[in-house]
Simulated scan of single mutants.
Amino acid sequence: MSKSTRATLALSKAGVSFETVTYDYDPDADRIGLQAAEAIGAAPSIVLKTLMAEVDGKPVCVVLPSDEEVSMKKLASAFKGKSANMMKPAQAEKTTGFVVGGISPFGQKKQVPTVFEEQALAHALVYMNGGQRGLQVKLAPQDAIKAANGFAASVIA
């Protein structure tokens, strides 16, 4: 497995300090983020999942703890929109250039507005997808927000 992906290159280019962590990705897992947390031995609250959604028809990225669900109402509000819905997997892959299970908020083909669940800021370090299945990056949440040119808001249900 390559530890050099568009996501890790984007983090390096942004001058962000991070570590890579690999694990055995299970394509049959019901919840990919929870499977990643278990595989790397980390609490689900610090292993963040990356979801692609649309707010008023425009693509957005949302990053939240793997054991939480996104509130579409709060997501729309975070982007000052009226409605939000999850992006279909094929569209998420086309938009980001990553495969589902390997979507990262960093190094996307076309960078879209990104929101991080504000609870992530309570932790010194968090894990996020590193741009391919079975690869996580460990970094400070403030650095992640900076690297993704994102912002923090309450988006969980």
Results as ranks from 00 to 15, higher is better:
Val47Tyr: 00
His123Gln: 13
Leu11Cys: 01
Ala53Lys: 04
Lys13Gln: 12
Arg6Ala: 08
Phe151Cys: 13
Met86Tyr: 04
Met1His: 07
Asp30Lys: 04
Lys73His: 10
Ala157Trp: 05
Leu135Glu: 03
Gln136Asp: 04
Ala92Trp: 01
Val16Ser: 07
Val70Ala: 08
Met87Phe: 10
Leu34Thr: 09
Ala148Gln: 09
Glu19Lys: 12
Glu19Cys: 11
Gln91Ile: 07
Val62Asp: 02
Phe79Pro: 02
Pro105Asn: 10
Lys13Leu: 14
Lys138Pro: 02
Val137Leu: 10
Lys88Val: 11
Asn85Tyr: 15
Lys109Glu: 09
Ala122Phe: 14
Val21Cys: 02
Cys61Asp: 05
Gln142Val: 11
Gly15Lys: 08
Ala153Val: 11
Phe79Tyr: 08
Ile156Trp: 01
Leu135Phe: 04
Lys74Gln: 07
Pro105Tyr: 03
Ala144His: 01
Val21Asn: 06
Ser4Glu: 14
Thr50Gly: 08
Gly102Lys: 05
Leu9Arg: 14
Pro89Gly: 09
Thr114Val: 06
Pro141Leu: 06
Ala37Thr: 04
Thr50Asp: 03
Thr22Val: 05
Thr5Pro: 07
Leu64Asp: 05
Ala43Trp: 03
Leu34Gly: 10
Leu121Gly: 12
Tyr25Gln: 04
Asn149Pro: 13
Thr50His: 03
Gly150Ser: 10
Ala120Gln: 03
Gln35Met: 03
Ile145Cys: 11
Thr8Cys: 03
Thr22Leu: 04
Ala122Asp: 15
Pro141His: 04
Gly57Pro: 05
Ile40Gln: 00
Ser71Asn: 03
Pro113His: 07
Ala36Phe: 00
Val16Asn: 08
Ala140Leu: 11
Ser17Trp: 13
Lys3Asn: 13
Asn129Ala: 14
Gly57Gln: 09
Ser12Lys: 15
Ile156Cys: 08
Lys80Glu: 14
Ala10Tyr: 13
Met72Glu: 07
Gly107Glu: 07
Thr95Leu: 13
Glu54Thr: 11
Val55Asn: 05
Thr20Pro: 02
Ala10Lys: 14
Val63Met: 04
Leu48Gln: 10
Lys13Asn: 15
Ala53His: 06
Thr114Lys: 01
Thr96Trp: 02
Lys146Pro: 13
Glu38Arg: 10
Ile32Asn: 10
Lys82Thr: 07
Ser154Pro: 09
Ala76Leu: 03
Asn85Met: 15
Leu135Tyr: 01
Ala124Gln: 14
Met86His: 01
Phe18Tyr: 06
Ser77Arg: 10
Val137Thr: 02
Lys82Cys: 10
Ala36Lys: 05
Gly101Ile: 08
Tyr25Arg: 00
Ala43Ser: 12
Ser154Lys: 12
Val100Gln: 11
Leu51Arg: 09
Arg6Met: 08
Val16Lys: 06
Leu9Lys: 12
Thr22Phe: 00
Leu64Ser: 09
Gly130Pro: 04
Thr114Ile: 02
Thr8Met: 08
Leu121Lys: 10
Lys13Asp: 13
Phe79His: 01
Pro27Gly: 08
Val63Arg: 02
Asn149Val: 13
Glu38His: 10
Ser77Glu: 15
Gln142Leu: 14
Lys13Tyr: 12
Leu48Gly: 09
Glu118Cys: 00
Lys49Trp: 01
